[in-house]
Design a protein around this nucleic acid. Structure first.
Length: 576
DNA sequence: ATAGGGTTAG
């Protein structure tokens, strides 16, 4: 077959199977020079299974006897366009080892990929190569470089690259602008915005979301009305801005009036309802969506997981896997799903998912491992949790807090304290969640004095104890028999005590048979919660123990006909 | 090459 014929075939070919046939012909005829062209053509396809494509492109590259820089550039650009950033960077490194001179496509795509995965080590080394290979005047490469620094928030370097650029495009301006917006430097952004020659929609949109994120919705609205042309993103930026300011109603108004909507509009709105705790409205919107993509499923599943509806989260996850057009779950899906399993204490559901990890094409990363630490710890497998914790690449605040809490609920107070000290040594500042775990640990170990010291040390880190922290302290004092201290703590709380706090006191009164405080506590509990049978039964058993039969009788009469055996409150505080 | 969307701990 002639080379020209093969080139025509290449232009028509649209499946991997056809490409393989053409490739075979190329090999038979010895037209190796046609391989880069085939790769190039294939990568222009609009296909859904990028990973298969990417793997194939990669293997083609390695079948070339001497891969040329053009082919490398094509494949690297393809990977970065399809969001396979880690793969793109590793390809660039491989190419660099062959001592080929990269194309501008290769360099700019590699820089973009570094920016997305925050691989600054690689990014900066490519920065060095930019000078070596003489891309000082290439707008694409320089803009990608500027964008890299802009994205990680190093505005000084970003500005330096920008100032030294011989040619700037509107993209370069926008890149710098979005960096200032993200850094919250609105003054600089505003000044830059006024200087941009030939602003486009993206410049306007960046400025709008800058004002909206800073809480200045009024100014965002003004710009929105003044801008010469609006696109979908302009509307979406306004919706996101309203949601950031908590005005869900205005967000919904914009959502309803916009001329067209895309997935981003829907997801922004769903996430907004989720943050506001309005799960029903979120689900209603979700059901109205025509084409649900991965991100819309993720938003809805996360909505359930974050609003204490783990069963619904898992149900939706199962629905997602059963769709006609298969939606491939990703790491973010699993993070929410693991959180749901953890809330249910359902380790077996996770094991089922784990057995499908390869099918999903998901590799465990630190983020998922942290979610798993919480799951395993909650299910009592503290050793497995420790194993995951030790295998983390980097232990951050969330990982430490999850592990400390895990130790706390598993009665390993000394481990929790050790972890806390280790965390401080690594200069990671604790937050309220860390202290919840730590206080839980002291509570389970019954270490009253140390626990109280710990509670008082919160202010050293600028932390104000929440109602839950007070609840744990009341429980700790109360169980140890320091009922007066527990009561004093409640009276001195800076906020209104809730049923949980009074309930902890009531339980302590039951343990130590204190009628006076028990009556006070139960009165507050009844005032604060509708389902009060559990509280009453606790009080009644106090009466019974101290042989106040009349009071016990009276109380039981009041509860007649009510079933309090399955009361969730009593099981929450059940003694070990 | 730039804007607008979904992840983990109580």
């Amino acid at each position: 077959m002639a080379a020209t014929k093969l080139i025509t075939l290449m232009k028509k070919c649209s499946t991997v199977k056809q490409a393989k046939q053409i490739h075979a012909h190329i090999l038979i005829n010895g037209f190796t020079f046609l391989r880069p062209l085939l790769i190039h053509r294939m990568l222009l396809w609009d296909v859904t299974n990028y990973r298969t494509m990417a793997n194939y492109a990669y293997s083609m590259l390695h079948h070339l006897h001497i891969p040329d820089s053009f082919s490398w550039g094509c494949v690297i650009r393809f990977f970065s366009q399809k969001c396979l950033f880690t793969e793109a960077v590793s390809l660039y490194v491989q190419m660099h080892r062959t001592s080929l001179c990269p194309t501008s496509h290769a360099v700019s795509s590699a820089l973009k990929s570094c920016a997305r995965i925050h691989d600054m080590l690689c990014g900066m080394s490519i920065h060095g190569q930019v000078h070596v290979f003489g891309f000082n005047t290439c707008v694409y490469v320089q803009t990608a470089l500027l964008d890299l620094y802009s994205k990680i928030g190093d505005m000084g370097t970003a500005r330096k690259v920008f100032d030294e650029m011989a040619n700037k495009s509107v993209v370069s301006w926008n890149s710098l602008l979005s960096g200032y917006v993200k850094a919250g430097n609105l003054d600089e952004a505003q000044y830059l915005f006024s200087e941009i020659p030939g602003k486009d929609v993206i410049s306007w949109n960046s400025m709008i979301s800058g004002y909206a994120k800073a809480g200045n919705v009024g100014q965002a609205c003004t710009l929105f009305q003044r801008m010469p042309e609006r696109n979908l993103s302009s509307w979406n930026a306004m919706i996101a801005g309203f949601i950031d300011c908590g005005s869900l109603v205005s967000a919904r108004e914009f959502f309803d009036t916009m001329p067209r909507r895309n997935c981003v509009s829907w997801i922004t709105m769903i996430a907004g309802y989720s943050k506001g705790g309005d799960v029903d409205s979120a689900r209603k919107l979700f059901d109205q969506m025509d084409h649900k993509d991965l991100l819309s499923y993720n938003a809805m599943i996360a909505c359930y997981a974050q609003n204490s509806k783990p069963k619904e989260a898992l149900e939706l996850f199962n629905d997602m896997l059963k769709q006609d057009i298969y939606v491939h779950p990703d790491k973010m899906t699993l993070a929410s799903v693991i959180s749901a399993c953890s809330q249910l204490g359902d380790l077996e559901h996770w094991w089922w998912i784990e057995s499908h990890m390869n099918d999903f094409g998901i590799v465990l990363d630190d983020h998922l491992a942290t979610a798993l630490i919480d799951l395993y710890a909650k299910c009592g497998s503290i050793d497995k949790a420790y194993e995951l914790f030790h295998n983390l690449r980097k232990r951050d605040l969330v990982a430490y807090s999850a592990m400390i809490y895990g130790c706390g609920i598993n009665g390993k107070a000394s481990d929790a304290i050790k972890l806390f000290e280790q965390m401080l040594a690594e200069c990671i500042g604790p937050n309220l969640v860390t202290y919840t775990g730590l206080l839980t640990a002291y509570n389970h170990a019954g270490l009253v004095e140390k626990g109280y010291q710990c509670f008082n040390s919160m202010k050293d880190y600028g932390l104000v104890p929440s109602i839950d922290h007070y609840g744990i302290m009341v429980d700790l004092f109360g169980r140890a028999g320091y009922l007066d201290e527990a009561y004093k703590l409640i009276l001195n709380m800076p906020m209104q005590p809730n049923a949980g706090v009074w309930g902890a006191l009531l339980l302590a009164c039951r343990l130590h048979n204190n009628v006076e405080l028990g009556e006070i506590a139960v009165q507050h509990c009844i005032k604060l919660e509708t389902d009060t049978t559990g509280y009453c039964s606790l009080l009644s058993s106090i009466y019974a123990t101290v042989e106040k039969w009349d009071d016990a009788k009276k109380l039981r009469k009041g509860m007649e006909g009510k079933d309090f055996t399955g009361c969730s409150w009593t099981s929450n505080f059940a003694t070990p």
